[in-house]
């Protein structure tokens, strides 16, 4: 296993073998999970803290389950984001966590770079569970594993990431991971939702959904935050759905055997039509959730190998 770092803060900077090894390990955890077995001795005596400064049910639960399946003591901490001094709370929390001898710290925060700041102050291995509009590395891992299970590979696949790319940490992590692994990545969305210099990240930019989906092996939809409309980046939900929402007509431009993904939670009728979201063969959204637990087990496993034996 070649993972070289103490923390998992970002996909950017990881090399293909690091990613491939993590995915292989996650694959084995996926099989273990399906067999109903557990490995509760691996993280026995280790403390995993889920520190969430933003609400999240899916990701927090997924990490909680992953930790428990490996035998860690899991504690969930939710910190109110309404507190005025969010940053102060962050560093105060760091010293509290050190005093608790936390081994693995899973952090979600509304500000880009917050887990990186925290990692400089805590003794624990830090896992970024989503920071601002920066990265969400475990989401990209679970997406890649899901794709690999369906397509047998990542290299050479055409992956279209669609919607609000500018504000999406999921999109950034996926762009980094998939381009690193040799996929041909496209980002599709209105110009107001495409980040500056996106092409410099090694992706192709499309503003027309049909052109962007043409010949795609994978269609990855993103959640459109409601505040993007109040912020004037998109005029209305109905206009967005008409031009950038995934429905059967637009999906017909992708390859017939293409798969549809979404990191959830979905806005049905805004970025994705219900009939597509629930499609029995094309939609792999449920499997993404399953692979999420497996990938997080792999990440916890790998990072725990570099922890001191006893404290």
């Amino acid at each position: 296993m070649s993972y070289p770092r103490k923390h998992l803060l970002a996909i950017e900077g990881l090399e293909p073998p690091h990613i491939a090894d993590l995915l292989d390990l996650a694959e084995s955890y996926a099989l273990l999970n399906r067999s109903g077995k557990t490995q509760r001795d691996l993280l026995k005596g280790r403390t995993l803290i889920n520190l969430f400064f933003e609400d999240s049910t899916r990701t927090r639960t997924s990490f909680e389950l992953a930790g428990k399946r490996l035998g860690a003591d899991v504690i969930n901490m939710s910190v109110s984001t309404s507190s005025v001094n969010k940053g102060e709370t962050l560093l105060d929390t760091a010293s509290t966590l050190n005093a608790m001898h936390c081994d693995l710290l899973v952090v979600r925060h509304g500000q880009s770079g917050a887990p990186s700041l925290l990692s400089q102050k805590v003794d624990a291995a830090v896992i970024n569970a989503g920071d601002g509009t920066h990265e969400h590395p475990t989401q990209a891992l679970l997406d890649a594993l899901t794709i690999r299970r369906h397509k047998g590979r990542l290299e050479g696949l055409v992956v279209a990431i669609c919607g609000d790319i500018a504000h999406s940490r999921v999109a950034r992590s996926n762009m980094h991971l998939l381009t690193t692994m040799g996929s041909r990545v496209r980002v599709v969305g209105p110009p107001t939702l495409i980040p500056a210099e996106a092409a410099r990240l090694g992706v192709e930019v499309f503003h027309d959904m049909k052109a962007g989906l043409a010949g795609a092996d994978v269609v990855m939809m993103l959640r459109l935050q409601r505040e993007r409309m109040s912020g004037g980046l998109v005029p209305s939900a109905r206009e967005f759905f008409r031009f950038y929402g995934l429905d059967a007509e637009k999906l017909a431009h992708a390859k017939p055997e293409s798969i549809v993904m979404h990191p959830g939670p979905m806005n049905r009728g805004v970025e994705i039509d219900s009939a597509i979201a629930d499609h029995p063969t094309r939609s792999v959204i449920g499997e993404q959730v399953e692979m999420g637990v497996a990938c997080r087990m792999a990440v916890l496993d790998v990072l725990s190998r570099q922890l001191p034996r006893n404290r």
């Binding site: 770079g113 950034r172 500056a196 210099e197």
Partner: peptide, 15 residues
């Protein structure tokens, strides 16, 4: 400053 670096870091840019 708006551009590749701000995009990579996920920071709001100023053109």
């Amino acid at each position: 400053t708006e551009g590749e670096l701000a995009t990579r870091l996920g920071l709001p840019g100023i053109t």
